[in-house]
Write a protein that binds this DNA or RNA. Structure first.
Lengths: 231, 231
DNA sequence: ACAATAATTTAGAATAGTCTAAAATTAGAT
DNA sequence: ATCTAATTTTAGACTATTCTAAATTATTGT
C-alpha cells in the first residue's frame, strides 16, 4: 500500500482526475496545456504510469487515458490535501480565498498523513472546501454531486452557487465583489447566444452580465426544477 | 536576488552550515554521512555550487568547502523556515517536540515568504525555537551565542540548558522524562574520564548519569563563572 | 473520398542528481 | 622518510523528467 509518488506524478494524476469528470478519456493535449509541458512529455508519462505495478492509469495508444482505481485514490489523496490546506491557510493564517491556491499546490505534496489528520481535526473535519468544492473523505470517497455549470442555465431558471474554481486569483477577487460566492442564489435574466453572455440577478446584489469564461468556472444547483437541464 | 534553489541544494547548504560552526571547512565525508549519499556525489555537488553565479560556496580541491555570504544566507533562510515550522506545528497542530523535526524538514523547502511571515506573526515573531535554538531573524542574522556543550563541563560547575538537537525523537523523549529541557538548570556532580559519563543533578528533578552520545546534543550556558571553559 | 489540419507518438538529446569502482592524494605511524 | 590507511576525486553509467523535430494517425469539410 505504501507508494511514494513524486510531486510530478501527483500533479499528473490530479489533473487527469479533474479533466476526466467531464469527458471519459483525456488526451495528451489537454494535459500538456494544464501542466505547461509538451504533449510528447505527456505521452512519456502516460506510458510510465500505465506500466507501474499496479498501474495508475489505463493507456491505449491514441485514445487517451483513464485512471485506474489506484490512480483515482492517489488523485483524491492529493485533492484532499489541497482542499484541507486551502481552508487551513484561510482559517488559521488568514489567507484570502484568492491567495490559498498557489501555496496549497506546493504544500499538498509534502505533508504527511499525520499533518492531514491534524489539520482536518483543527478544522472540524470539514466536508466542503473554501471555494465550495467537496473535500474527499479520509477514506477517499468523493461525493457524487448533482450540479451543473452556470453556463448551462437559461433565462427563467434560478440557481444556487455551489462552487467556484480556486485557481484564478483575479477571477476570485472579481466574483467576491459581485457577491457570487458559494451559497449565493440568483436568477437568470437573459442569455445571448452570439457572445455567450449570461445576464443574471444575484439576490441581495446587483445584476451582472457574465462572459463564457467566467460562467464556466462556477458550478450551481438548479433551484427551478420545472426546466430540465441539458448538457 | 531571486534564486530558486532545489530542495537538494537547500539541504546541502543547511548541513554545511551546521557542520561549519564547529570546524572551519567541511569535507565530503562528513556531509556524505549527514545526507546519506556517497562522497563522490558530494564532490559533484561542491563543484556545482562553487560554479554557480554567484557561487554559494568556496571549494578548493581536497580542502573541503566553506559557505560564501550568499550560501550562508540561503542556509539561514532554510533554518529559519525549519525552526518557525517546528514551533508552529507544536503550537497550532499540537505536535510533540519529538515529532516536529521530520515534518518541518519537508515543509521548509516549499513554503513561501508569505507563509513564513504569517507563521512568524501568529507565533509573535519568536526568537527561540521549540528546542531552544535561535531562530534567524527575518533579515537572516543569526545571533552569536556564548554557549558550550554539556560534555565540556566539569564537576563543580553549574549550568542552564540552552538548547537540544531536534533530530532524534528517541533522545528527545528521553530528555523530556529527565526534565532536561531548555531552561532547566543543573549542577555537575561527577565526571568519569574512562567512559565519558557525566553525572549531573537537575534542579527539581533527580540525579542522572549521561553518556557521551547524549551530552553532545545539549548546549548549555555556564552559570558558575569561576571556572573557565576550555575549547 | 480525400486533402488539409489537428493530435499523438517516436526518436534523440539535455539536465539534475545519484551511484560504483578505480585512481589520486593526503595523513599517520613507526 | 616511507608505507599504510583514510579521504577525495575522476570516470562512466543510471533514472526521472523534460525538450524539439520528425513521423504517424485521426478528423473533418467539401
Amino acid at each position: 500500500m505504501e507508494r511514494r509518488l513524486s510531486d510530478t506524478v501527483e500533479n499528473y494524476l490530479k489533473v487527469i482526475y479533474d479533466l476526466s469528470s467531464d469527458n471519459q478519456r483525456v488526451g495528451t493535449g489537454q494535459i500538456a496545456e494544464m501542466l505547461n509541458v509538451s504533449p510528447a512529455s505527456v505521452t512519456d508519462m502516460f506510458q510510465r504510469l500505465a506500466s507501474e505495478d499496479p498501474p495508475l492509469l489505463n493507456y491505449v495508444k491514441r485514445q487517451g487515458v483513464a485512471l485506474t482505481e489506484d490512480g483515482k485514490k492517489a488523485a483524491l489523496e492529493t485533492i484532499r490535501h489541497h482542499r484541507l490546506l486551502e481552508l487551513f491557510l484561510h482559517e488559521v493564517l488568514d489567507y484570502s480565498w484568492d491567495q490559498v491556491h498557489d501555496e496549497a499546490d506546493r504544500l499538498e505534496h509534502v505533508i504527511s498523513e499525520d499533518f492531514e489528520e491534524r489539520v482536518a481535526a483543527v478544522l472540524g473535519n470539514p466536508q466542503w472546501g473554501l471555494h465550495g468544492k467537496p473535500i474527499p473523505s479520509r477514506n477517499l470517497v468523493m461525493p457524487d454531486l448533482d450540479t451543473c455549470y452556470l453556463r448551462d442555465l437559461r433565462p427563467g431558471q434560478s440557481g444556487l452557487v455551489h462552487s467556484v474554481n480556486d485557481d484564478d486569483p483575479g477571477l476570485l477577487r472579481y466574483l467576491e465583489t459581485l457577491g457570487l460566492v458559494p451559497g449565493a442564489s440568483f436568477e437568470v435574466i437573459d442569455f445571448s447566444p452570439y457572445d455567450n453572455n449570461l445576464h443574471i440577478r444575484i439576490k441581495g446584489e446587483n445584476d451582472v452580465v457574465l462572459g463564457a469564461s467566467v460562467t464556466v468556472q462556477i458550478r450551481v444547483e438548479i433551484l427551478d426544477l420545472a426546466v430540465d437541464k441539458e448538457r
